[in-house]
Design a protein around this nucleic acid. Sequence first.
RNA 1: GCGCCCGUAGCUCAACCGGAUAGAGCGUCUGACUUCGGAUCAGAAGGUUGAGGGUUCGAAUCCUUCCGGGCGUACCA
Length: 544
Amino acid sequence: MENYLQNSLREALAGLGLDESQMPEIRIEQPRDPSHGDAATNVAMLLAKPLKRNPRAIAEELIASLDLDVTKISGVEIAGPGFINFRYSDLYLYEELRLILNAGSDYGKSKHNHDIRCLVEFVSANPTGPLTVGHGRNAVLGDTVARLLEWTGAEVQREYYFNNAGRQMRMLGLSVQARYLEIAGADFSFPEDGYEGNYIRDIAEELFHERGSELTEQPDEKVFREKAEEVIFRDIQSTLKRMHIEMDSYFNERTLYENGSIDHVIRTFRERGVAYDKDGAVWFKTTAFGKDQDTVLVKSTGEPTYRLPDIAYHADKLDRGFNLCLDIFGADHIDTYPDVLRGLDVLGYNPKLVDVLVYQFVTLVKEGKPFKMSTRKANFVTLDELMDEVGEDVTRFFFLMRSPNTHLEFDVAQAKEAGEKNPVFYLQYAHARIQSILRKAGEISTPSGEPDLSLLTHEAEISLIKKLLTFSDVIHSAAQNREPHRLITWLNELASAFTLFYHDCRIIGVDEELMFARKTLAEATARVLANGLGILGIHAPERM
RNA sequence: GCGCCCGUAGCUCAACCGGAUAGAGCGUCUGACUUCGGAUCAGAAGGUUGAGGGUUCGAAUCCUUCCGGGCGUACCA
């Protein structure tokens, strides 16, 4: 419909003597106020300045030369400072409504991004502890944006990037070793910066159970580190699975050392004159790109900083043929990714193929006070604990309902009493209620053949249909902006439009032709609710 | 200090690329069907969009100054 209106307007403008260069961008939007029609454009206002004419006069001429199909558009009017408002014809609405049920679980899918091969990198927590509510936002955002992209036709791969070497992992191994020695009754000293969580003790106990005290003489922490990694990764994967997140691939940072990518980056940087040695370290000349300071790529100890493998990793993704690399980052990484982009540019890759979704942090509130989370200090609430309390659906919903760009306040106590207050139930309830009605209505015989949808003339029926028809638009806009909360807002509006219909229009107990038509509308609504909840990774229940 | 993000109703948040009278939920108050699920619905109260200035037909949205909060500004990740 949007395309249709744009094309018609473009033709009309051409008819007024405008050539390509004068043609403004024709945007069709949905007016906030339904009395302004179903679609509107501001082209006349955009033309007012270049043509030096009154926008309303332009709009009038434009309308006069518009040639619109009456089976689609039933009315056009000029309003306000020069908006042109269109009203859809009922015939068009009935036709589109029929398409919803034909498309079924595919309804809402589009091909907007059919040319995109995207790798979404998210979670990417190193295996030093269980996933916490701090990781939750990342995990759910990444997965949902991936789903949104899939619904707009993109090919998507979900990847988890991790590093199982380095200081933190060593510390983890030492922590487990200390607990193991403690359990075995041997001398031990807990490392100063060790991991204090109870899960460390659990891992040590598991190890003791399997191997007895034969490991007390181990010279280093290797065995313990490897065991910890194995157990923690298993735990992380089960948490993800519980959240309906399935990774397609796991990428170990070590690969980049083994296949020479890291060396290649350094070598190329030196050749291009953007890397140099100073004080025993290798530096990236980021001042040349407008940064205050140059950045260390390889420390004087010979160990690279995380930026170097990051650059190599992104080059690797592009080498694998993806034309969109989407990273899901917390606000603390906001300053690091420009270095990656610059690095890619130096290497000859197109940095525009990398896109970063930066989300603001989750503030954990405990007993009314903000609470600083730390995996090492064991100050955290795990995602599993959260799901035990409020369930998987509420957990996902919670992380999606707000714009990634705003801080998310997470009050533990409030989440626990979430129950009825939680808006996710409003959506699920609407779906369950429709299913209940359909079950009851199914026991009553309906006329055979196609329903006569033209019987749907009530205001509540019409506005419900109109709402349904904007489903794929909202998916598209949520995908393009990487903002899943838009879909939630929209689903709330849909559920609300349905409830209005439910209160005004009975399905059971009216004339059987009308019942058939209304049943069809209810079915279409349930379909769209289920599809929408599915994108959010939330269950659409038959009963509650 | 510098950089990025944020500031909207009592609270938590919306507002699609600058559009028409800034909207929801929770909370508060007043009401509603003897039939399809009351986990519902209708209505009321609640706002100088942090403050000032600017840009234009039009600003919560863009620019600028200030105030307040978060994050970063490591040879940590």
